[in-house]
Amino acid sequence: MRVPESEIRRVFQISLWLKGAHSLLEVLGGLALTFVSHDLILRIVSALTAAELLEDPRDLVANALRQLAEGFTTDAQSFAAWYLFSHGLIKLVLIAAVLAKRIWAYPAFIVAMIGFILYQGYRMSLDLTFILVAITLLDLVVLVLAWHEYGLVRREQRQNPDAHR
């Protein structure tokens, strides 16, 4: 059974909006990490895990969060802030341009997605996490859809050169 082109485009649009929302959260998270002190992060994690650790001092998730926060150095915080902000901002700009059907944005978006997927693959080789696998799978779907949409937009542009810039 062949999926109608309108449905593929609709899924692509939805995936772009989801990636855009995720990118906005990355930008906000990067900004938050820039302006939040390491001490405040430790206090927040302590407050979030205190009740659970009183109930069960061996709670796996609460102890893991505490260990993660304690091991989260200021250098790691600076890198995370830079990475989240830059990664999110690049994607936001490219997603906005693709949603506006700017022809130049499709190849740039595709190259950026490939770069992010390769980096995420590298990170998964070091530490396999469910969230990274899920994000990477979504990125792969978006990449395939972007490639498909780029082909359609290029054909439309050849048929009507004034439609896209």
Results as ranks from 00 to 15, higher is better:
1 M>C: 06
3 V>Y: 06
5 E>Q: 14
9 R>C: 14
15 S>V: 02
15 S>W: 00
20 G>C: 07
22 H>R: 00
26 E>F: 14
30 G>R: 01
31 L>I: 13
32 A>Y: 14
40 L>W: 05
45 V>S: 07
47 A>M: 10
49 T>W: 04
51 A>P: 00
53 L>W: 10
53 L>H: 14
54 L>C: 04
57 P>K: 05
58 R>C: 02
63 N>A: 02
71 G>P: 09
74 T>H: 03
75 D>A: 12
85 F>C: 10
86 S>L: 15
86 S>Y: 10
87 H>Q: 14
92 L>E: 05
92 L>Q: 04
92 L>H: 03
94 L>W: 02
95 I>Q: 02
95 I>E: 02
98 V>K: 00
99 L>C: 06
100 A>H: 00
101 K>W: 11
105 A>L: 03
105 A>T: 04
105 A>K: 00
114 I>N: 15
117 I>T: 02
119 Y>P: 06
124 M>W: 05
125 S>V: 11
125 S>G: 13
126 L>M: 10
126 L>T: 02
130 F>V: 15
135 I>G: 06
136 T>Y: 09
137 L>D: 06
141 V>M: 10
142 V>G: 07
143 L>Y: 12
145 L>M: 06
146 A>K: 01
147 W>N: 13
148 H>Y: 13
148 H>W: 11
148 H>I: 03
152 L>T: 09
152 L>H: 08
156 E>L: 05
160 N>S: 12
160 N>F: 15
160 N>L: 13
162 D>R: 12
163 A>I: 13
163 A>Q: 11
163 A>K: 13
